[in-house]
Design a protein around this nucleic acid. Structure first.
Lengths: 244, 244
DNA sequence: CGGCAGGTTGAGCGGATTCAAATACAGTGG
DNA sequence: CCACTGTATTTGAATCCGCTCAACCTGCCG
């Protein structure tokens, strides 16, 4: 959230306080929030990797978003009765629980935090729209490239990259579920990306060998991530803004 | 927005006041807001039909959402610098302009309106996620059925249906751009829907002949529209909730 | 050592695309 | 009232991307 605006010390302290209060640890494949659930608190990912997903009548699964540290799992809990989708851990994941009440009052009191939450939600909308473009109009090869490049940018934002490498330990089945492909085809496209020398993929670590070429291959334009408001770009995760 | 919660008379008056202040009329194919733009006010659709879209380098177009009366075109204008996508009129469309300032102060003053805006945004997120499932995992036939059924429900919410008919004068090219298909194939699937006796389509008016069958064919589950909060369902557009 | 999950590979199929031409249709001006 | 024009819809045939479904391989863990 701090991408959007600088927080005052007091605001930071309040956030820390909320985050430290209560935590959960989730094992891989475990639901953090199930579809149809309504809990009294909000989950924030502190470490690990999770995903939003929906199951289909025919047994298929569609992953709609990956959640990395700093992401809010269920902002809708403020307002809506039930979750219209599930959130599951992919790797072991720790989350902080913030009471919905606390969140609501927080929004009323301070405007910085409220605006930051709006920014996060608006950015989520942008990411979803981009994914629709992906699945609607881009080829399998481009889709995978796009997903990987987007994850590189997002991991940079939270300073979880090592150069052009980042830990992204998803199975190819997950990748397929996220891109709307079959595992077999996702595999072939992944191989092509490697053969083209754009990326490397070993032991759950993605290394982008040619960021510029990958960006081109992905037809990536980062405006939808709205990093332009970053208050101090030089300090933000090795300048994620340079990638967009 | 009134789907979510009843407004007080004062709140209604304030809304009316804002909406009456300033208006725009847009011709078909005209941009209401262009990609990359940033205006100082928010657009609300009063009549007509518009769409969110993105253009692709290869000349293709992806429609990400249809906007019907009552929908907000550019909620992001509060927070974000620029639009990451465009909004264009499909039929002649009138919009009300609300100064971003007025909107911001409105949110701080009254909590009902603020929550309603959150509800609208959260619902938008849900609709986008459902579209991702659509394009990722559903066949062309199901996709078209789903889109049409969703529009039936949404038009009911704003009481713009006549029985199971509603005016939805989009071209098949638009339909194809929205579903991620080619016009030729969209046409064929549309014909199949008609041949199967599920819908009728004449002069820009969609008539759903067999709502239940269409819903099944669409694999539709309306939870993502979050109509459960409707404060007085019997009064809401011929009970749109009954369709979900 | 066996079991299992994930990754890789191949052959054949089919849904959706491409591209083209034919047809319907509404609006316009003669 | 009818040609004329441009746009939208319909149809056909060939092609291709991505799917299906199967077998096979690899590494890891008990």
């Amino acid at each position: 959230m701090e991408q959007f605006t600088a927080f005052s010390d007091m605001e930071k302290r309040r956030l820390d306080q909320l985050i430290c209060a209560d935590r959960e640890i989730h094992a891989p494949k475990e639901d953090i929030i199930a579809e149809g659930a309504h809990s009294g608190h909000c989950h924030v990912v502190l470490s690990g990797l999770a995903c939003r997903y929906k199951l289909l009548p025919d047994g298929g699964r569609q992953i709609m978003a990956f959640l990395i540290p700093g992401d809010l799992c269920d902002a809708e809990i403020f307002i809506l009765k039930i979750m219209d989708h599930g959130v599951a851990a992919i790797t072991p994941t720790t989350t902080a629980l913030i009471p919905a009440e606390a969140m609501k009052t927080l929004l009323r009191e301070t405007s910085s935090l409220g605006e930051a939450l709006w920014w996060g939600t608006m950015t989520d909308l942008g990411v979803l729209r981009e994914r629709i473009v992906d699945e609607g109009r881009r080829s399998a090869y481009v889709r995978i490239a796009h997903l990987l490049y987007e994850m590189l940018v997002r991991y940079r934002m939270v300073e979880l990259t090592d150069g052009n490498s980042f830990a992204f330990p998803i199975t190819q089945t997950d990748l397929a579920d996220a891109t709307g492909l079959t595992p077999a085809h996702a595999n072939r496209m992944l191989q092509k990306l490697r053969a083209d020398g754009l990326i490397e993929l070993r032991g759950g670590v993605v290394t982008v060998i040619e960021p510029d070429l990958l960006k081109d291959a992905a037809q990536f334009s980062g405006t939808y991530l709205h990093l332009d408001r970053a208050h101090d770009r030089t300090s933000i995760g090795q300048r994620a803004g340079d990638l967009v």
